[in-house]
């Protein structure tokens, strides 16, 4: 799995753009159409429900990817994402991600393996 992630990250580092976020800055809101894949270089990002912003649904930190699912499935974001502390992220454009997913077999297999692995044990993804 580390090999799959390494290949993904190498591509994201080559092709992504770096963005710096202040604490409590919003990456995206629930219901928005995804435009980027996010990779956390450092800092922390939490997913929250608007109705309960105090209790995050999930937390992501250095090395995590956010938004792969939504980019692949075309679904809108189920939660909002905000930075907890000052954070530096790399962002890969949706069109480039789709292009790589379609034409780069290694990239595609890496994404599939990584997402399958991250879902291990999550509710609804039992087998």
């Amino acid at each position: 799995m580390e090999i799959a992630k390494d290949y993904l990250l190498e591509l994201i580092r080559k092709e992504g753009i770096v963005a710096a976020y202040d604490p409590q800055e919003v990456l995206f809101h629930k219901g928005e159409v995804p435009e980027f894949l996010f990779y956390i270089r450092n800092g922390t990002v939490v997913l929250i429900e608007a109705s309960d912003p105090v209790h995050p649904v999930a937390q992501f930190s250095m090395g995590n990817l956010i938004g792969v699912h939504e980019l692949i499935t075309g679904a809108t974001y189920r939660f909002s994402a905000i930075t907890e502390i000052s954070s530096s992220l790399m962002m890969m454009n949706k069109d480039r991600f789709e292009d790589l997913f379609q034409h780069d077999v290694t990239f595609r297999m890496s994404v599939v393996k990584l997402i399958s692995s991250e879902m291990t044990g999550m509710k609804g993804s039992y087998e």
């Binding site: 499935t73 997913f101 595609r108 994404v111 599939v112 999550m122 609804g124 993804s125």
Partner: peptide, 24 residues
């Protein structure tokens, strides 16, 4: 199949995503 047909890979990811959403 997944390596040769990216649409199959997409469908698989979609099914995973739906399973997570249904679990709610």
């Amino acid at each position: 199949l997944i390596s040769k047909n990216y649409l199959v890979a997409k469908d698989m990811m979609r099914m995973l995503s739906n399973a997570l959403a249904d679990a709610e």
